[in-house]
Design a protein around this nucleic acid. Structure first.
Lengths: 203, 203, 203, 203
DNA sequence: TTTTAAACGAGACGGTACGTCGCGTCTTTAT
DNA sequence: ATAAAGACGCGACGTACCGTCTCGTTTAAAA
C-alpha cells in the first residue's frame, strides 16, 4: 500500500491525498502525536474518515508518508548527497550542525518526533521507516566516508556503519530523550572525539 | 514521589501502590504500551482507577515508577557499579553484552520500550526519567572510565560524556528503531571502534 | 422527536431507537429509576452509550419517549376517548377504577413513577411531559365532561379543568406519595364527593 | 434512627447535627436535589462524611430532618392549627393562598421539591414522610373542617379525607408537575368548586 | 455521449477508554 | 471516645475516538 504503487488500483483523488498529508503534519506540529486523532486529521483535511482508512493502515503510516511528502526531493540534507569539500572533519561537523538545526526547529521536530513514537510502537512501521528514511540517509553518510577513505583521510579498514552510528546516534538519542541541549558545541566535540580517535597516553 | 516527602499527606496504601506497579509492568509486558489502559492496570491490580489518578499524573509516571520498582536495589547493571577487572576494553565489552542481553529479553524490553514511548511524548516525564534513571547510569559509566584514566588506560583529557554517548547511544538507537539486530558482534565492534580510536593511515 | 421532523438529519437507526426504548422501560421496571443507569440501558439494548446521548438529552427524555412508545395507539385509556354510556358518574367511576388498576400494576407503575421523578427534577422535561402526556389526557377527560354538559348532567357554568383536577389529582397524589392504599372504595368515594357536590344541611 | 430519638444513644455533637441540616437545606436550595451530594453536604457543614452516615440512612432522611428542622415550631401554617374566623370558605381560601405563596417561594420550594423526589424513590422514606409531615398537616385540616361541621357549615356526613384531598391535591399536583401557574385565581376557583358543590341544572 | 462503478464527504453505529465525581466503608490523627 | 479528614474499591458519568458501515454525490473511465 505504501510501496510505490504506480499502477493505481482505481481513480484516487490526489487532492484528498495531499490534503490529508498536509493536515497530518500541521496537526502533529500543533498538538503532538497522541492528540492528533484520525478524526481530527480527516476533519481538518475536509475528508471522510474512510478515505484515510482506505489508503493507510494506521496513523503512523500516514505520518511516514506525510513526513516524506513534506521533505520531497530532498531528505533533510541535500538530495545530491553530503557535502564534500575534501575535509572530512569539517564536513561532518557541518552535517551534524545542520542536523541539530533541524532538530531544534519545531517545524521539523514535532512531526519527526511523532513519527518516531509511531515507529517505536509498531514493528512493521519500523521496517518501512528503515527502508524509506533511515537506510537512504545512512547510504549517503557512508558514501561520504567512503570518499574520505579514497582520499586517504580514513583507514580503509574501518567499519563505516560503526562510524556512522557513533557520530549520529548520540545526537539522535540526546534529541529523543531530551537528555541534554543540542548545541554545536556538543556535536563539534562529538566529531572530534570520534574522528580523531581516543588518544592514549604515550601514543 | 519516592524522594523525601516522609510526612505523607495522609495514610497511603502501600498494598495498592505495589499492586499497581506490578500490574503495570506485567500488563505492559503482555500487550504493549498503547494497549495498556489505566483502566486495565487498575482492574488487574484490584484497585479503583482513582487510586492511580490520585498518586500519578499519567500512565508514563506509573511506568517510570514501575520500572524503577521492578529493578530495585540494582538498576540494570550491578548496584555497586560497573565491573572493573583492570581491563577497560574487556569490561566495556562485557557491559555492552549484558546490555544487549537485557534488551533482547522481552521481560525487560517491553516495559522499557513502553517507558521510552511515554518519555518521548512527555517533556516533564523526560526530565524525571533523566534524573532518576539516565543520570545515575551515566554516572556509573563515567566512574568506570575515570578509573581507567587513573590506571592510565585512557587519556585524562578525553570527554567522558562523549565517550559514554558514543559507546551506548548506538546500541540504544538500534534497539529503539529496530534498525538492525542487537548482537555481541555489533557491540564488540563498537567498543573496538570507539576505544581503539579511528586509525588513520600512517599513524 | 416523534412529532413531524420527517427529513431526519441523517440516517438514524430505528432498530437502535426501539431497542433503547424497550430496554429503558424494562430496566426501569426491574430496578427502578435511580438504579437504571444510561450505561445499563445501552448495554441491555446492545447499543453504544453515544447512540443514546446523540438523540436524547437526559435519562428523563429517554423515559418519556419510552413511556409514550410503550403505550402507542392508546395512552393509558382508550385512544378513542373516555367511555360514554350516558351516565357521567358511572363512567367516571369506571375511569378512575381503571386508573388505579394501572397504578397498582407494577408493569405500568414503575416506569411511570420513574418518569415522574425525572419530570420533578427537570423543568424542561416537565414542559415536554405536559405537552405530550398530560394535556392530551386532560383534553379527553374534558371532552367527556363537555358531553355530560350537553346531555344536561353537568352545569354549563362549571370549570372543567377544576373538575378534572379534583377528580384525578387526589389519586395521583396518593399514588405518588404512597399516602394511602389505592382502592376502588377510595375512588368511588371521590367521584361521589366531587360530582354529587358537597351537601350542606338544609339544602 | 430517624424516629424522634429523644434518649440520644451516645454523646452526639449537636453542633454537627445542626451544621449538617443547615448545609443540606442550603445546598439543596442552591443546586437542587440530585446535585446535592452527601460529600458536598459534609464539606459545607465542615463535617466528616462518616458523621452523616452514622446518624442518617440516606440523603432523603437528612432532607426530611432538615425540612422539619427548618420549619420548627410551626409547620408551614400556624402551629396552633388553621385559622378559624367562622367562615369556612374564606378560611380555606386563605389557607390555599398561603400554600401557593410558600410553593412560589424558592426558599421553601427547592427543599420541599427535593424532599418529594426523595420520597418518590424511597418507600420507607415515604412512610416516614407521611407520619411526620403529611399526617399532622392533614389532621389540622380535618380539625378545621370538623369545626365547620360543628358550626353547621358542612354536612356531618361528608368524608373529611376526601374533602381535604380534593382541596389540596390539585395544588400539590400542579406544583409538582408544573402543569400550570400557581395563582390565587386557581386556588380560589378550586375552593369554590369543591366547597360549593357542583350545581346541576334545575337543582 | 452516456453509463456506471469507484471514490468521496458525511456521519451514525457498537465499542473502549478516558478522567471525574460520588458512593458507602474503613483507617488514621488529633483532640 | 468521637470527630475531621480523607484513602479506598467501585460504579457511573458524559466525551473523545476507534474502525466499520451505510448513505447520497461527484467524477472520470469504459461503453
Amino acid at each position: 500500500m505504501l510501496c510505490s504503487m504506480p499502477p493505481r488500483s482505481t481513480r484516487r483523488s490526489d487532492a484528498a491525498r495531499t490534503a490529508i498529508l498536509t493536515a497530518a503534519v500541521e496537526l502533529v506540529g500543533e498538538v503532538g502525536y497522541s492528540k492528533s486523532s484520525i478524526e481530527a486529521i480527516a476533519t481538518r483535511a475536509g475528508v471522510g474518515k474512510q478515505t484515510i482508512y482506505r489508503w493507510w493502515s494506521s496513523k503512523g503510516s500516514v505520518l511516514l508518508d506525510a513526513y516524506l511528502n513534506a521533505n520531497v526531493g530532498g531528505e533533510p540534507e541535500d538530495p545530491q548527497g553530503l557535502p564534500n569539500t575534501g575535509d572530512l572533519v569539517a564536513d561532518m561537523r557541518a552535517v551534524l550542525r545542520a542536523t541539530v538545526d533541524e532538530l531544534n526547529d519545531p517545524r521539523f521536530e514535532r512531526p519527526l518526533r511523532a513519527l518516531t513514537v509511531a515507529v517505536l510502537e509498531d514493528e512493521s512501521l519500523a521496517a518501512e521507516y528503515s527502508r524509506r528514511l533511515d537506510e537512504p540517509m545512512r547510504q549517503m553518510k557512508k558514501e561520504r566516508l567512503r570518499a574520505a577513505q579514497r582520499q586517504g583521510q580514513l583507514s580503509p579498514d574501518v567499519d563505516l556503519d560503526a562510524v556512522v552510528d557513533t557520530l549520529f546516534a548520540p545526537v539522535a538519542q540526546r534529541w529523543l530523550l531530551r537528555s541534554g541541549p543540542l548545541t554545536y558545541e556538543y556535536t563539534d566535540h562529538l566529531v572530534e572525539t570520534v574522528l580523531t580517535g581516543l588518544p592514549r597516553p604515550g601514543s
